[in-house]
Nucleic acid binder design. Sequence first.
DNA 1: TACAGCGCAATGTGATCACATTGAGCAAGC
DNA 2: GCTTGCTCAATGTGATCACATTGCGCTGTA
Lengths: 231, 231
Amino acid sequence: MTDDAPKLTMPARSAGETIHQWVFRGLRRAIMSGAFPPGQAVTIRGLAEAMEVSAMPVREALRRLVAERALTLLDNRRVRVPQMTPERFEELYAARTALEVEAASRALPLVDAARLEKLRAIDQTINAAILSGDSETVVAQNFLFHLTLYSARRDSVLVPLIESVWLQTGPFMRAALEAFPTAADGYDYHLAALDAIAAGDEAALRQAIAHDIRTGIGHLALSGKLIAVAA
Amino acid sequence: MTDDAPKLTMPARSAGETIHQWVFRGLRRAIMSGAFPPGQAVTIRGLAEAMEVSAMPVREALRRLVAERALTLLDNRRVRVPQMTPERFEELYAARTALEVEAASRALPLVDAARLEKLRAIDQTINAAILSGDSETVVAQNFLFHLTLYSARRDSVLVPLIESVWLQTGPFMRAALEAFPTAADGYDYHLAALDAIAAGDEAALRQAIAHDIRTGIGHLALSGKLIAVAA
DNA sequence: TACAGCGCAATGTGATCACATTGAGCAAGC
DNA sequence: GCTTGCTCAATGTGATCACATTGCGCTGTA
């Protein structure tokens, strides 16, 4: 309750958007970017006041976020940002791998030259951000890289599932990045993925994506180093 | 609007359960069991009246079900049971395969003798139900078989994701079963899975699960026969 | 000083009302 | 006869109020 309603910068409310959608979008983005530390309690009235809306849209947004497992509903009916545990983290990355390898494999035949070029551009942005130490951009652009690849195939099942898993890793990312600003392992698996795409090599692409996910921040977490930060 | 509120048998409301939870549970079960045909429009006031509760708990339950993709939110802000298309069906089964093969693989080392016995019992129930033509039991027990296997490992990520995908196939199942009551392909992949578990053979288990998913009702759908029923 | 009991503030839940939007039916005009 | 525009019912959205529960702090007593 000391800082239940910090700055919490809300996005601009686009035309025709309901307050519920606006609130949901703002909360979701805040959670994904790690604006709320794990374990943080969130209250309907607190958020409603901070966003200057009534309780109603906030209630519905919270329900939705709980359903997506971006937030946790406690037994006392209170809502908080999920805690991260080594087991959960490992599960999240196992799920990510299973889903994203499949999504990449399915998207591969539908990646055209324009999309491949876009992927290359994103990868360069990431590399530049790594060099300049801009961790926030690294995470955001890395997500964009993966999403851009999978979206080559218009998919209404796998992509939402993948986003759901990303969302669950969100609150943890902030803490992870602050502790280990640039945790690159020296090998660019995005580049390997791009080569595999250009060559149309499905097996190589699957392996590149799997490696990319596993080496990103995953291996650090497995060693238990990051968990201590978030707990 | 002709039959916006059919019988809709609600489960008993357990002690300490909020109305929201009760409504959500009832709706979710109804959807999974195919009580609502695909394309069916659902309204807040209609359901509230049918369940004899106010609009509030229904609103929140619908939001939640939309978040879980058990229901679809149209542009006009109305909610309906999702339509099934061949593409979506294929995506659902691809996602199921990716997630469940992984879940089975991870659960394998933790399956003890008691659980294996339980799985055998479920499989026998399924076989009996197939012989007697009880399709409803086949689907329910088949779900239970898979869930019992994956739950050997206490998992808070993969299992909910799998349930989410099952939920999305729900409305379609009723129509599928009515059209093709016992669509067995002659080979019991559950038995193959059980053998693989007993032998501790991970590769064989992965293959058995993948085949089981693919041959269940999946291959029928791919041929387009079932889609016509649901559309 | 430690602990039990009370009481109030905070919070979630549910109901109801007011309003905007959607959509369908109907009527008037071309 | 077809089309356009209007009207009204149906529906979703948002706000507000009342109530139950939770949880914490305060106080009084041993």
